[in-house]
């Protein structure tokens, strides 16, 4: 805090002058509040991130394994000209998009029921039920699906069929993991929506489906976008789920992970791909007001 507690007696003269100055200058108060957090973020987060992207323009000597610190676009031309990377990137973005769509399709009806149909007594119970799995460990949840989809596991013995390990299993597991991140913002958006809009639409003769499409959906859109930031980004960088349930398929995260120990510059160049995708996504959705819903 800018104003340190002074117990007993009057604050010393210089202290009082400082307080008076702070009181007159809100800018100084902001600066004193932000000094520590911003220093931390710049030193611990922005600088490493910036250095990583500088590294992306360096290369690794294939004979000595040493990093050559001279500017080169070699990593990027390698990525762009190698079809295998194109396939991995497209597969990863496709998985992230499928997961986001599935989470929306499952999440919207659930959030709608919670916010608009369930009684006031049931609402907090349902919220708690949706929230609780977020606290169960990520690894445990992936592990649960690894168990379920295992050969002769519960899926096979109950349903008689299982997708087994592979891309469908990856999409299913990631949808499972990130679903609450989609439900909660939509629920908050729907719960804050005023009922009078819905009544007005009904009074004007709008049928429920039309009301949903023309009134509800535009109003909860920022919440859906807010949820999608998480479902999309979390899927984009994942490399553990695919190791556990993906069979032999690889995602971008695996490519980054594997190159990390061999050639940091190349891994850094690969890592710019999800960053560019996500920064573009965040900037695009900033106007929808979604970031205030995070």
């Amino acid at each position: 805090m800018a104003t340190t507690a002074v117990t007993g007696g009057k604050p010393a003269g210089s202290m009082r002058r400082l307080r008076a100055t702070m009181h007159r200058r809100p800018g100084l108060r902001v600066a004193s509040l932000l000094a520590l957090p911003m220093t931390w973020m710049v030193l611990v987060y922005l600088t490493p991130l910036a250095l990583l992207f500088v590294t992306a323009f360096w290369t690794t000597d294939s004979f000595t394994g040493l990093t050559k610190r001279t500017f080169s676009l070699e990593n990027f031309t390698d990525i762009l000209t190698e079809p295998a990377y194109y396939t991995v990137v497209m597969r990863t973005v496709g998985i992230a998009a499928s997961v986001t769509v599935l989470c929306t399709l499952i999440g919207v009806p659930m959030a709608f029921f919670m916010a608009r149909v369930a009684s006031a007594r049931w609402q907090p119970v349902l919220v708690a039920l949706v929230l609780t799995p977020l606290w169960a460990s990520y690894l445990v949840k992936v592990y649960a699906w690894r168990t379920i989809l295992a050969p002769e596991g519960p899926a096979e013995s109950w349903l008689g069929a299982s997708p087994g390990y592979g891309l469908p299993a990856v999409v299913l597991t990631l949808t499972y993991l990130w679903l609450p991140y989609m439900i909660l913002p939509i629920y908050a958006g729907l719960a804050n929506m005023r009922g009078s809009f819905l009544e007005a639409a009904a009074d004007l003769g709008s049928r429920p489906w039309r009301t949903f499409r023309t009134v509800v959906l535009p109003m909860v859109w920022p919440s859906i976008v807010a949820g999608s930031i998480f479902t999309f980004s979390l899927s984009l960088g994942d490399y553990i789920t695919v190791q556990l349930v993906g069979g032999s398929s690889l995602m971008l995260g695996n490519a980054i992970y594997q190159n990390f120990s061999v050639s940091l510059p190349f891994a850094a160049a690969l890592a710019t791909i999800p960053v560019i995708v996500m920064v573009g996504y965040l900037l695009a959705v900033r106007r929808s007001g979604a970031l205030d819903n995070l």
Partner: peptide, 12 residues
């Protein structure tokens, strides 16, 4: 941003 990016940036 994906955790792996924060991870390798900090590691570096």
């Amino acid at each position: 941003l994906p955790g792996i990016i924060t991870g390798i940036a900090l590691n570096n």
